[in-house]
Design a protein around this nucleic acid. Structure first.
Lengths: 184, 184
DNA sequence: AAATTATCATTGACAACTTCAATTATGTGG
DNA sequence: CCACATAATTGAAGTTGTCAATGATAATTT
């Protein structure tokens, strides 16, 4: 039973603000409540060249997606950043902080803060790196693995919401294409 | 004569920092100098579940892309943000500031700052909105349109670099998929 | 048409994030 | 051993994100 499709009613309605004169009931009957709280961009703007630039599309998609993910993660006291670090710690890849910085494209000092916070909550700890005593491998605690389970579920729901306009094969294809440009 | 493929030698080498013991010359012969300054993520980390999450992939892709775009725009004293506003002003969509905020997913107050800066440089101005005297339509000056031309070319080069791993049809498909999730 | 309520642009405050330089401990190559 | 590079950390700037309040104008209600 895959691909859950929750309703998110409370979350979405919280984000929804009516705006504009609303002279006539425009053509937003099908979209607005089903696909998510996308803040109603006038069709007129979609004629701009910007909507063809990957840079812009990726930024907008990420903004929408991370907004939803943050909302879903908030009850767990996580954000996409801290979730990412926790998820990497819970993977079996045994990442060092430097590797996390490169992987997540954050400054090493940001990793320090993120790991500090997670460590203070008893979710991860800095283990020794047998090959290099300078570096520290981020590992999960039992509590960390448990929270990660729940957080991953929340992220899946957020992702499912973000990907609502795409069918299964399209989602797979998007993943493949993004992986290519995100790595090499 | 489409799809320019510049070399970016100076730009890229500026971003390149050697790191790590470099015990053996790993398999980065083909990639590192051709496709861009992607900071060498160990293959081991690619086994994590995170690389399948759209949220993460979009964030990483955007980070790489906007980094390149910002680098290319820097000589013109623009960033992706100010470029986006300028580009919208130069489109024939006559956007108000509120519309720009929704479209670019920025707070209205951020639009004020961006427009202020562009206006101070004589690139755009706030025109009246015939339909609503509260709102202001952002329009380009002659200098703004001229700079936009050059900026758009720079962004195309950056995008071409970011999309290097994809062939033509793949790029089109990515655009289509991203447009679907970026709008509805 | 007067009152009420909402929206637009703007300002200002504050939190969060980004980027950099400097430091200490450790690793690498000569 | 020495010179140099890198990992984690700290702290300081600079930038961006988020929010609340305000004055002008618009829409809605009575």
């Amino acid at each position: 039973m895959p691909a859950v499709s929750l309703r998110l009613s409370s979350v979405q309605s919280a984000n929804l603000k009516l705006r504009g004169p609303v002279t006539e009931p425009t053509q937003q009957e099908e979209e607005s409540w089903e696909s998510g709280p996308i803040p109603a961009v006038p069709d007129r703007l979609l004629a701009s060249d910007l909507v063809n630039e990957i840079e812009f599309l990726a930024a907008r998609a990420r903004s929408l997606g991370s907004g939803r993910a943050n909302t879903m993660l908030a009850p767990l006291d996580l954000k996409v950043r801290s979730y990412s670090v926790l998820a990497m710690a819970c993977s079996d890849t045994e990442p060092s902080q430097r590797e996390l910085a490169d992987f997540l494209r954050l400054d090493p000092s940001q990793i320090v803060s993120l790991v500090d916070a997670l460590e203070k909550r008893g979710l991860v700890f800095r283990g020794p790196d047998p090959r290099d005593r300078r570096s520290k491998v981020i590992r999960p605690t039992a509590a960390g693995m448990e929270l990660h389970q729940r957080a991953a579920a929340a992220v899946r729901v957020a992702e499912d919401t973000s990907l609502a306009p795409l069918d299964g094969p399209e989602r797979d294809q998007l993943r493949v294409l993004l992986r290519k440009i995100a790595f090499g």
